[in-house]
Write a protein that binds this DNA or RNA. Structure first.
Lengths: 196, 196
DNA sequence: ACCAGAAACCTACCGACGGTAGGTATCTTT
DNA sequence: AAAGATACCTACCGTCGGTAGGTTTCTGGT
């Protein structure tokens, strides 16, 4: 938990910490999650395992922070000022097709963090809750604007869109030829209101 | 690979093998996937690790066989004579809400088996392919019967329904209060043709 | 300029894990 | 009853994530 607060650190340490986060994703992308041990990541930044664990509480904690960084880079998908989260989610799906390492990492952690003891448990729990809130709100906005049928429950449909995003990635990892964007668009299209 | 063929075995061994498969699922259900080591499973059936590995090539191989058994138990979801796979999938989703251990195991393996070196890689690859085939065929049948809108691509929609099933389980593991059946039904409902 | 004190590391070690090698004991078939 | 396969064990291995406790390096306050 001490690592959570970025309060008191040297500039060198701060840079190294960021370097580790980047290296972790690079190693996963190049060698696969399965072969990305703490050792491998440490070597990639010229440290030992213990050296890396000085910055992060555990391997799980490190990998979770990589995902946190990603969400930051994704902009305000999870804290949108007023944007359409459905559209943001679609953009994320499209973008994910260019970063297989990130998809691997995300899928692994999303499943592993089911355990309460997992360092990323709270992160994912909150992420799913936030996503339910912002997505369902965007769906309601679309319904008010006449862009989406009104006979669907916004909360149920937010679960569906989240599931589609997560689930498509699982299939895509097994078969990268499937078109995630097309599949996502197929759902959204069906949600459009019938022509008068 | 030698373990795949159930040809030459004693009755005792056959029974033990089945006992191991059941015990593996029991251990996962009771202690969680995270704490289900080969050791734990072995102890549950009164064997050592090596004893269990006499029956299965590896831990991954064992767990994959547990899932194979499940698919057999699910009936002909993946090799349906003429049934509606969409409805079968819905039943599976409902049933899954009663077996959290199985959901944990399935989700873990589905993600881990992305690696080519994983013992369950081929199983999942084939599973996804078969599901795409049977699901898209059922969707086409529904379209012909006037039960489903015809402006959706059957293959894309089969990916969507599979993703919804997989993705809902991921969310459900983090928050068991969400209603997977309701969410699944919401998609299917939206796929119904508009009233004339 | 220097000197506490914190931060940035390292070496050495630990237990648990999955897996292997090679043996012994048990069963079944003939 | 012999023969051969099967069932299963003990002992061991390398790798993993993680910890304890040190040493070195930096930095801010006097």
């Amino acid at each position: 938990m001490t690592n959570e607060a970025p309060s008191r650190r040297y500039a060198k340490g701060d840079a190294k910490r960021r370097e580790i986060l980047e290296a972790a994703l690079t190693v996963i992308s190049e060698r696969g999650y399965r072969n990305s041990s703490l050792q491998e990541i440490a070597e990639a930044v010229g440290l030992t395992k213990a050296g890396v664990l000085h910055y992060f509480d555990s391997r799980e904690d490190l990998l979770t922070h990589v995902l946190r960084e990603r969400d930051v880079a994704y902009g305000d998908l999870f804290t949108p000022a007023d944007g359409d989260v459905v559209e943001l989610l679609r953009k994320a799906v499209v973008y994910n097709q260019t970063v297989p390492g990130l998809v691997q990492l995300y899928s692994r952690l999303a499943v592993e963090s089911e355990s309460h003891e997992h360092a990323g448990h709270d992160f994912f729990k909150e992420r799913y809750q936030t996503l339910e809130g912002t997505l369902s709100e965007s769906i309601r906005a679309r319904q008010r604007a006449g862009q989406m049928r009104t006979d669907v429950d916004p909360v149920a449909m937010s679960h569906v869109l989240t599931a589609v995003s997560d689930g498509l990635q699982m299939q895509w990892m097994h078969d990268p030829t499937i078109d995630m964007a097309a599949a996502f668009d197929a759902v959204v299209a069906v949600l459009a209101p019938p022509a008068p």
